[in-house]
Amino acid sequence: MTAKVLSLRPRGTPSLSGLMVLAGPGLTAVNHVIIDRMQSPVALIPELAGHLIAGGGKRLRPMLTLGCAALLDYGGTRHHKLAAAVEFIHTATLLHDDVVDASGLRRGKATANRLWGNPASVLVGDFLFSRAFELMVEDGSLRVLKILSSASAIIAEGEVAQLTAQREVETSEDRYLEIITAKTAALFSAACQISGVVAERGPDVENALESYGRNLGIAFQLVDDAIDFVSDADTMGKDVGDDFRDGKVTLPIILAYARGSEDERQFWRDAMRGKRVGPEDLIEAQRLLGTSNAISDTMARARHYGARAMDALSGFPNGPARRALTETVEFAIARAY
């Protein structure tokens, strides 16, 4: 099963190195903002927030803000605070998600809710949302405020939609795509689009960057949902099959259910209701995902959205920035964590 999925990945080893080099100087400034703004006289706040912020994340979303600014040859510094706001929004959603999912592991480390409890995690998440909005207001652009505040609302709607779809194995593929576009892709698209605003490049450029980020975010989530069944805690930072045990209806399950026999469909219904979530049931789920080509087709869809993300960059001059953003798409599809 694992070998079959890995064979679908592009040859070579795409990485974030190009984006990291591109964003490097700006990312140092962003990190200074993050460290400064997560401080509080209430000691638990920086302690808990720092546990997650310093917990091994790649800062992908703020790096996208910086990378898109470089693509536009923007020479100012406004995007530093805005990239920090993007990271605060992302971190706040992770804190809240781990509470909702009762997660115990993230990026290979114990989650904040496991260490400090659910109430502290929720409240510190609220604190980080507030810090993000402070940074937006300080920027002074109503356009930026609209983009990022709308993204925050859409993310929350997506999380609620996912919660209501949990264990509903007959969720349609279209509905699933609506959910991941909201809960994951909205922040990717906003992180990219705001660079077009600060660079004052107009609606066409903004729309191209928004499209790049949105399609990248969809591809990113599709890969996440596929590798939940084929990776492990060392590479994913969480246990294999966590989504399966939590009753999260993702695209691989939607496809396997739609293509299965009645007995196979009954297995998925029982599994999503929490009746078949033992180790042997996960093995059976992996088998059914393999025989139905559900994982390979999920990866094919990820490549489709990845291609759309790269197409959105076609109007920009070829150069280090465009190549780095293109390789970021390739990395999102080829990664194994």
Rank of each mutant, 00 (worst) to 15 (best):
A161R: 14
G12T: 14
N207P: 12
A3D: 15
T13P: 00
E327F: 05
R78L: 05
L64N: 02
Y212Q: 03
A23G: 05
H32I: 07
G117F: 14
I227W: 01
V205W: 00
L72Q: 00
R303P: 03
P119N: 07
G260T: 06
Y176F: 15
T235Q: 13
E280P: 02
T171M: 15
T2N: 15
A336V: 14
L148F: 01
A182Q: 14
D204Y: 04
G306M: 11
V124Q: 01
R106S: 05
E168Y: 12
T2V: 13
L282A: 01
T235A: 13
V100T: 10
D246K: 15
S189I: 07
E159P: 05
K183W: 03
N293G: 06
G306S: 10
L255K: 11
R167Y: 00
L95V: 08
R11Y: 03
S211D: 10
T13R: 14
L64A: 05
F188C: 01
F133N: 12
E327V: 08
T93E: 00
E206T: 13
H96V: 07
M136H: 11
R265W: 03
D98A: 08
A161G: 07
L177G: 04
A49G: 05
E134D: 15
Q193L: 10
G315F: 09
L163Y: 09
Q193H: 12
V144W: 01
V205P: 01
M63C: 05
L66R: 00
I45C: 03
R114F: 15
G306A: 10
S211Y: 07
D297F: 04
G12N: 12
A112P: 01
S103D: 10
E284K: 12
D234F: 10
P203T: 13
V86R: 04
Y74W: 11
Y305R: 06
G24T: 04
V100E: 10
G241S: 04
L123E: 02
S296D: 06
T93A: 10
T250L: 07
A334L: 10
L145S: 14
A182E: 11
T28I: 12
S130H: 10
W268G: 00
F88P: 02
D242H: 14
V86T: 11
P203C: 13
E284W: 08
A307P: 02
L145G: 13
A336I: 13
I283S: 09
A85L: 13
K58N: 01
N215T: 12
L94Q: 04
R214H: 12
G213K: 09
